[in-house]
Each structure stands twice: as structure tokens, then as C-alpha cells.
Simulated scan of single mutants.
Amino acid sequence: MSQAITATLADDRPMWPAMKKGYLRRCPHCGEGSLFDGYLKVNAGCAECGEEFHHHRADDGPAYLTIVLVGKILGPLLYVAFTKFRPDPLMLSLIFSVAAIAMSLYFLPRLKGALIGIQWSRRMHGFGRVTAG
């Protein structure tokens, strides 16, 4: 592909709005249709605009990002809670275990949607194929 076509393709699908729509679990194209048909099952396509989602490749990326994000948030909090307040270790582990599970359940579908939004905006894995001719 030529430089001009590549620049045009990148400009017509901005990444940040697509990521935001995906994070909100909406279609990265129109922002109206639902991206998921349940907790993590991606719809085959958007009911509003017809954009196909079946060829996304999020794989283990959302799980990895969720682990990193939850660890980066709870790690320092655990250190501060342990050094400043000295709670009972059982209570500390119970509170932080529940927090880690709750945060993981919250972030996992949202990060998966954001990754699908990135893939859509960059035309990866079959999103918006350009045919020659």
C-alpha cells in the first residue's frame, strides 16, 4: 500500500475514540450497538451498523492487562495498609482478595472491548479489509 492510502486508512478510524467505545462495551464503529452478548462473548456483529466482530483476536491480552492493572493498583495499597495500619493478616488477605476479584471482574470485559477497539481502528485481523482494484 502506498503512503497516502496508509495515512488515509489510519486517519479515518482514530484509535482513542474506538478504544473508549470498546471500553464502554459498545461497537467501536458506531458506538451504539452492544459489543458483547454476555460477560465476555463477543457478538458476531453490531445490531445497529452491521460491523462484523467475529474476526477479532483479543486472546490473552485482556487477561494479561487486567492482571497488570489490578496488581499495579493493589500492590502499593497492600504495602501502605500493611505498614501504616498493621491489620490482622487474615483480615488483610480477605479484604485484598475480594478487592482483586472485584476489580478483575470489572476490568476484564472493558479491557477486552478496548483491545477490540484498537484492532478495529488499526484494521487488524480482517476489520475493514481494503480490496485492490
Results as ranks from 00 to 15, higher is better:
1 M>G: 11
1 M>N: 02
2 S>K: 13
3 Q>I: 13
5 I>T: 02
6 T>C: 12
7 A>L: 14
7 A>D: 13
8 T>S: 15
8 T>F: 14
8 T>V: 14
9 L>G: 03
9 L>R: 09
9 L>N: 10
9 L>H: 03
10 A>C: 03
10 A>N: 09
11 D>L: 15
13 R>G: 06
13 R>H: 14
13 R>I: 05
14 P>V: 09
14 P>Q: 14
15 M>T: 11
16 W>F: 07
18 A>L: 09
19 M>F: 09
20 K>W: 12
21 K>L: 11
22 G>M: 06
22 G>E: 04
23 Y>P: 00
24 L>H: 00
25 R>A: 08
26 R>G: 08
26 R>F: 05
27 C>E: 02
27 C>F: 01
31 G>T: 03
32 E>R: 12
33 G>L: 04
33 G>I: 01
33 G>F: 02
33 G>V: 01
35 L>D: 00
35 L>S: 03
35 L>W: 00
37 D>P: 00
38 G>S: 04
39 Y>I: 01
39 Y>T: 02
41 K>F: 00
42 V>T: 08
42 V>L: 10
43 N>H: 15
44 A>H: 00
46 C>Q: 01
46 C>K: 01
46 C>G: 05
46 C>Y: 00
46 C>I: 01
48 E>I: 06
48 E>F: 04
53 F>Y: 05
54 H>M: 08
55 H>S: 13
55 H>L: 10
55 H>E: 11
56 H>E: 13
56 H>R: 13
57 R>Y: 06
57 R>G: 12
59 D>Y: 14
59 D>A: 15
59 D>L: 15
60 D>K: 13
61 G>Q: 10
61 G>T: 08
62 P>G: 04
62 P>F: 02
64 Y>R: 09
66 T>C: 15
66 T>S: 15
69 L>E: 01
71 G>Y: 04
71 G>K: 08
72 K>Q: 15
72 K>P: 02
72 K>R: 14
72 K>A: 15
73 I>W: 07
73 I>E: 08
74 L>K: 00
75 G>C: 09
77 L>W: 04
77 L>F: 09
78 L>N: 13
81 A>L: 11
81 A>H: 07
81 A>F: 07
81 A>E: 08
82 F>Q: 13
87 P>F: 07
88 D>C: 13
90 L>W: 08
90 L>S: 10
91 M>Q: 14
93 S>Y: 11
94 L>Q: 12
97 S>P: 02
99 A>I: 08
99 A>T: 05
99 A>C: 12
100 A>N: 02
100 A>S: 09
100 A>T: 05
103 M>L: 15
104 S>W: 02
106 Y>S: 12
106 Y>C: 14
108 L>N: 07
108 L>Y: 10
109 P>D: 12
110 R>I: 06
111 L>G: 04
112 K>N: 08
112 K>Q: 14
113 G>A: 06
114 A>D: 09
116 I>L: 13
120 W>L: 05
122 R>D: 06
123 R>M: 08
125 H>N: 14
126 G>Y: 05
126 G>A: 07
126 G>M: 09
126 G>F: 06
128 G>P: 00
128 G>I: 03
129 R>F: 02
129 R>L: 10
129 R>C: 04
129 R>P: 00
130 V>K: 07
130 V>W: 06
130 V>L: 09
131 T>D: 14
131 T>P: 01
131 T>I: 11
133 G>E: 11
133 G>W: 05
